[in-house]
Write a protein that binds this DNA or RNA. Structure first.
Lengths: 143, 143
DNA sequence: TTATTTAGTAATTATAATTTTACTAAATAT
DNA sequence: ATATTTAGTAAAATTATAATTACTAAATAA
């Protein structure tokens, strides 16, 4: 039974792949790595220090020094000392950084809304209920 | 109502982000781009020509020439002429190419199964039902 | 207190990704 | 029949990413 459940989860990932890879298209002004960093900050909705980003994105902290400072110069994020650890620096998105991310998500949102017309009323209700359930339970699993 | 539905979908994406970014860790022998290409072929479960991969992954076809030929030399994929279009070349994963991908998914599978213990029996049943529903309906939406 | 980790920075080298231009051959449009 | 578009290849130049080594200062362990 757990086997089938895990299988459904595995199946879900490719089903979202389209939306997912769409995230980093028309990324004009930013490099791949720069995009990853602000995307990571945006998704997790809080400030991180360099080490946390390094672990979360599985890239060397040495690489982040340049990436982050470039993003800072361009106004996408700000660095401020961590009051709890004088070695560390907390990195947070600026309104400009958030805006860039929100724009990307808005495109996914629109495409989804358009495709929704392929489902009838009942299917749409079912999908909403099921998505909500999945979100609630996946969140619980991670906590 | 559609608004809330789209919102649930948007929420789902970050919930899967962890598993998703885990896909391309411990990618030892392959470069980033090489990984993307065989991952794309694996997820879509059929042969593609270069142009299709180029569009699907949003990278220039000129880049793929090198990436694909390197993967071919290493035995991850094979190229064969498209019988329907004499200009085109169909690219398909070899057993070796599939194996590398399956190994990565197995790790996600295991981690999910482990986290599953944080849910009780009823929640697990609910999750399975909801995931199944989501998969069926998202597939229908794309078709 | 002293030794060891840990967070961040910096510079260098090697490798990979991206862009540009240009070409061939097959497919399609006029 | 001719012109144009499309799939794939190729080479060069630019830029980005990755890996290595080394350093400072703060935190933590002994």
């Amino acid at each position: 039974m757990k086997k089938e459940l895990a299988h459904e989860y595995i199946t879900l990932i490719p089903n979202l792949f389209g939306s997912f890879s769409e995230l980093n298209k028309n990324a004009t002004e930013l490099s791949h790595m720069q995009n990853h960093v602000i995307e990571y900050l945006f998704m997790n909705k809080r400030a991180f220090n360099l080490k946390e980003i390094s672990t979360g994105l599985d890239i060397a902290k040495q690489q982040l020094t340049n990436v982050v400072s470039a993003l800072e110069v361009q106004g996408y994020l700000v660095k401020k000392p961590d009051p709890k650890d004088k070695r560390a620096v907390l990195i947070a998105l600026t309104p400009k950084g958030k805006e860039v991310q929100e724009k990307k998500w808005a495109e996914i949102y629109n495409r989804f809304s358009q495709n929704l017309t392929k489902l009838n009323e009942e299917e749409q209700r079912d999908l909403q209920f099921a998505l909500h359930k999945v979100n609630v339970l996946l969140t619980k699993m991670e906590g």
